[in-house]
């Protein structure tokens, strides 16, 4: 599973990081730092919850 993030559309809600700081690292301004993350085994549910928590809906889960 992969997470793909439309980083330019992030407005710094930081709700994803509230679910998992490991999967969704933020920069010093509180905006998402990454555009793509390989989800480690066992963290699939957190990844999905993080995506659903985004008010901007810019986090997409790619099932492989």
């Amino acid at each position: 599973m992969k997470i793909r993030i439309d980083k330019s559309a992030c407005v710094g809600n930081a709700r994803c990081a509230n679910i998992s700081e490991e999967l969704f690292p933020l920069d010093d301004d509180g905006y998402i730092k990454v555009t793509e993350v390989d989800v480690p085994p066992g963290m699939e549910q957190l990844a999905k919850r993080g995506a659903r928590a985004c008010p901007e809906r810019v986090i997409h889960i790619i099932e492989e």
Binding site: G12, A14, D29
Partner: peptide
Amino acid sequence: RQPLQKVFSPK
């Protein structure tokens, strides 16, 4: 807005 971001960041 940019200068204010860090001050109001979650950290």
